[in-house]
Design a protein around this nucleic acid. Structure first.
Lengths: 174, 174
DNA sequence: CCGCGATGCTTCATAGTTGAAATATCTCGC
DNA sequence: GCGAGATATTTCAACTATGAAGCATCGCGG
């Protein structure tokens, strides 16, 4: 409705649509709302991480990936999973090395490759933060019941597939 | 350490679950998916803006706000709408001034305040980009039909409300 | 008027982020 | 083995982003 940028010409019932040059209004509003939700949650998590643990979100995200992979991760894999550039990971890793959360070692089989692992201290620090993090997310999503979460989950699944199929490059399998 | 994974009380094969004090697993997965969708779309838009217009997303976002506000915007308002820090806006504005997309003028009524406006060239450049931008978003969302978009829209609306109500500070009304 | 807290913006140090170029290593066809 | 292209990582310049500190200005109570 209400998208009357001039002439909606339709001759008969058959020809009806396909004449309005869609301005993608609905998609844009949806995208904006999606972005707002993500930004709000991300900002809140970032702030709490900083205030309560003096930690940053990118560091936390990297540790989270490392936590899921028992045997350490190759830098390229980290880059793919976090969906950030390789150069970014290098800098991030350097800082986590300094703070003692992780270690870095060259792969024995491929000398190009660097493998990072969490130290016991890193693991402990992450465990503490992760528990709170879960609670924060749980609280932020409190207004949704189980059915709504399922709905969102599957709708976003569809969206994800749609986006992937319309991107230039196929991308990873996260 | 409320939920030691070891303490899963289950009497027999049937009863096994439903005992765990929520670890917010579902919420976390949903959050992750939300984040992935947003990141994918954002990355795609950013790449196309760069490749096709040699422009960046933050600049585009700022112009978009300025485009919606006919009479220019105060910097603080821009900061609130984009949900970024004030210092960030200062830098962004400086670059958009240099490139001639906007102008800046002090408010006549309040000498602390700076008002920015789009130049005609800025408006023209934005119009060109915005049209493509709409098409990109439209294409990325193509896999969703109207009903699914409505569903997403309202579910995200609920999520947004939930998040807002669980943040420390109320925040703005974007 | 005078102060004083609130507000709007800038400055600063630090960090995250990107894309492209450079480097090193690997793999595979030959 | 050799060399060409692919892959993994680092380096680099530019920019985006943050939070805190600093200024200037405003508004208001006295």
């Amino acid at each position: 409705m209400t998208d009357a940028p001039g002439a909606e010409v339709w001759i008969d019932a058959e020809t009806k649509v396909e004449e309005a040059p869609h301005d993608h209004r609905a998609e844009l509003r949806l995208w904006l709302r999606l972005l707002t939700c993500t930004n709000l949650i991300e900002a809140e998590v970032r702030r709490r991480l900083r205030e309560e643990y003096d930690f940053t979100l990118p560091r936390f995200d990297l540790l989270a990936q490392l936590d899921k992979a028992e045997d350490g991760l190759v830098l390229g894999e980290v880059s793919r999973r976090l969906m950030v550039s390789a150069g970014n990971v290098t800098a991030l890793v350097e800082r986590l090395l300094e703070s003692g959360h992780i270690t870095r070692a060259p792969s024995p089989t491929d000398r190009r490759v660097q493998i990072i692992r969490m130290t016991p201290e890193g693991r402990a620090a992450f465990a503490r933060m992760a528990e709170d993090h879960g609670d924060w997310i749980g609280a932020l999503f409190e207004g949704l019941d189980e059915a709504e979460m399922d709905t969102l989950m599957s709708a976003l699944g569809k969206l994800k597939a749609s986006v992937r199929s319309h991107m230039r490059e196929g991308g990873n399998g996260a």
